[in-house]
């Protein structure tokens, strides 16, 4: 008890500020890149909730957006391209007390790593998955991605000089059909809404998915086409109605922002799994001896 009380006074004495969550490394993103907004929003929400950075692990994909962990003061794991979700699932299995966040781009999560998204969603791993979606491969300098909708915006699109016939996928639509228990969309240019959505995602118990529309000023500057289409989801939408949420997700005329769907009652991976614990050598020997008998 004494320890808890002391910890609380410490927190009261020094509430953490957003900049306390930022590391010494300065982002190397291009001026105007949407990812700046995402980074600021995350550190603000962490500060508002006074989250203990020692309990946070950010696992990221590879891409401009995947650089995230380097700029934040908490545990970070910058792994390989497309595999952030399974890596984060391992972290969650090893220590269910950790707050796990995954950050990876549209190429990372919906192209090379697309096979992992449905499984993390249906397992309801208790983590927050931020997908900064710039509809392009930023880090590799401007090839089309699975979410590219308007090739005329692509500055280079070296990989598709003759255009593309491929239909873009809809990240929110996918998350809804994969059974994610929390699905939202935000926009890096709408900072207040972005922080609010990230805050709600962090509060959700279960797999919370946030597509953050986050334009790439260098290779796919979509601010001008997106901003006029933005609409905010209001109370009229029933947040527990997956079909209604799908209709909003596939609305061609508007880009709806806010929480599309939430199911707070589904058991999470962390609830379901036997939590790992230390067993003494004696305990292991006893368990083994019982099992050995079945082999004689």
């Amino acid at each position: 008890m004494a320890e808890v009380a002391q910890a609380q006074t410490l927190h009261e004495a020094e509430p953490r500020r957003a900049k306390d969550y930022r590391s010494a490394v300065d982002p190397i993103w291009c001026p105007g890149c949407g990812d700046f907004g995402v980074l600021s929003a995350v550190s603000e929400v962490f500060a508002e909730r006074n989250i203990d950075p020692d309990n946070v692990v950010i696992v990221s994909g590879i891409g401009c957006s995947g650089r995230f962990p380097a700029f934040l003061r908490c545990y970070g794991f910058h792994g390989v391209h497309g595999r952030a979700l399974p890596t984060a699932t391992g972290v969650a299995l090893a220590n269910p007390k950790l707050r796990v966040m995954v950050v990876g781009g549209d190429g990372d999560g919906l192209s090379i790593g697309a096979g992992h998204f449905p499984h993390a969603a249906r397992r309801n791993v208790d983590l927050t998955y931020l997908l900064p979606d710039n509809e392009i491969y930023g880090l590799t300098k401007g090839q089309i991605s699975p979410t590219t909708t308007d090739l005329s915006l692509a500055k280079k699109a070296l990989s598709s000089p003759h255009g593309s016939w491929e239909q873009p996928v809809n990240p929110v639509g996918l998350a809804l059909s994969y059974g994610a228990s929390f699905v939202a969309r935000a926009y890096s240019a709408q900072r207040k809404e972005l922080s609010k959505v990230i805050d709600e995602a962090l509060a959700h118990r279960g797999f919370s998915f946030v597509q953050v529309v986050s334009p790439c000023t260098t290779f796919y500057n979509s601010y001008k086409t997106i901003t006029p289409k933005v609409r905010f989801i209001d109370d009229e939408h029933n947040i527990h109605d997956r079909n209604g949420a799908l209709q909003l997700a596939y609305d061609r005329r508007h880009v709806w922002l806010g929480v599309f769907y939430r199911d707070p009652d589904r058991p999470t991976l962390q609830d379901q799994f036997q939590h790992i614990r230390e067993v003494s050598a004696g305990g292991r020997q006893r368990a083994l001896n019982d099992i050995f008998r079945q082999y004689t």
Binding site: V57, V59, R83, T87, G90, V91, A92, L93, A94, N95
Partner: peptide
């Protein structure tokens, strides 16, 4: 039981990173 072997080893590395 993961969705493929990439995820399997990814999961192991994540868990190892977290001390298991």
């Amino acid at each position: 039981q993961t969705e493929d072997e990439i995820a399997a080893l990814g999961c192991c590395l994540g868990a190892s990173f977290a001390g298991a």
